[in-house]
Design a binder for these strands. Structure first.
Lengths: 192, 192
DNA sequence: ACGTTTCATTGACAATAGTCAAGAGTGTTT
DNA sequence: AAACACTCTTGACTATTGTCAATGAAACGT
């Protein structure tokens, strides 16, 4: 249990067996069925979730239309960090696209681990730094590139997600309508 | 010297006088004239820069057109983090929009401080976490909202930047052409 | 104070993306 | 097997944004 979680952890920060056991004591397993919510807008986000198996999405809703901020498959971490850290209401929803097994770090666990295990703080710092750099790149491509090129680089960067997730969600992730993405794919196919 | 740097630091992590002196020893002051580069695409980013005075921008260039990823005025931190951390070539440019005074944390200083001063690591973690949350919000508004609403929330969120920076750079930051922003502003003005 | 560059605005037109509606194909449930 | 929900595609039309070019105003450097 928690194999993938500790594999990813140790890629960033190596741990002794004792340290691993110590951290393990703070983790909570959770299973989620397809379509089940992990978090709904308006609630307070009570945990950071690491995905051991399955696929989730994080999205906001605006006039009834959904905008996907993030996907998370095996090995990824997902949360509404702002709500988690401040205790304010969440502005995002998180739900399961496939049946999923998660490792939760609750708020209490997070605070204790920060106090007691310096390597946890280092891991968190590196995790967020990586997420920040990835997000900068995504934003850069969003303001710089035409939709077609954004789609191409998405499928190249995340071929696994592109296959597992419905197209209209990829459109939503990219910030365009499903019809638009469909037409772009057609144009790309016609050129070949 | 470094007043604002330590003010911002202590807002996140309080320091004793000795700790402050210890950290101060690792910092490097730097002045930049308007239009001068702090970093050019292709170089390796050698420092994280904190702005004591003045204004900078970070941007990428794509077919001759510039796309602004970030502004940084007094109290903000700016860097090509990916290049800084990995030693790879920078993909962004950073230059001064106004004469500026900076506090630099060089790569060597960063590594030493991480080893010797746990509060520095905590500060970095909190700094990047805040930047990450802000970036998530910006991306959400980019994929969710029409240009006009993005412009309004930009001017409300950063009225100081909106005043100090040329309009075409705000357009670039938002991912639209200067003509488009100009027309949107006209439409907003006409409605009143 | 001068000439030069940078900026913002506007117009005419082209390209791109959104909207609304219909239909076909899948897979699931009962 | 029939009914249903979900997904993707396509067409016709609208709205938004980009492109190119010109102009006037402001800011800048010397």
């Amino acid at each position: 249990m928690y194999e993938l979680f500790f594999q990813k952890f140790q890629e960033k920060v190596p741990l002794t067996d004792e340290e691993q056991e110590q951290i393990k004591a703070y983790l909570t397993p959770k299973k989620l069925r397809k379509r089940q919510y992990l978090l709904q807008e308006g609630e307070v986000c009570k945990a950071i979730a690491f995905v051991e198996r399955g696929a989730l999405r994080e999205y906001s809703v605006d006039n009834g239309s959904e905008h996907i901020l993030q996907f998370a498959i095996e090995g990824w971490t997902i949360s509404d960090l702002f709500s988690f850290l401040t205790g304010e209401q969440a502005t995002y929803n998180i739900d399961a696209l496939e049946d999923a097994e998660l490792v939760l770090i609750t708020k209490g666990a997070h605070e204790e681990l920060l106090k007691k295990q310096p390597k946890y703080e280092t891991y968190m710092r590196l995790l967020i730094t990586g997420a920040y750099i990835a997000l900068q790149r995504r934003l850069t491509s969003n303001i710089s590139l035409p939709v077609e090129e954004r789609y191409t680089s998405f499928t190249e960067m995340y071929p696994d997600i592109a296959q597992r997730v419905p197209q209209h969600m990829i459109a939503s992730f990219m910030g365009v309508k499903p019809e638009t993405l469909s037409r772009i794919r057609k144009k790309m196919a016609d050129r070949k």
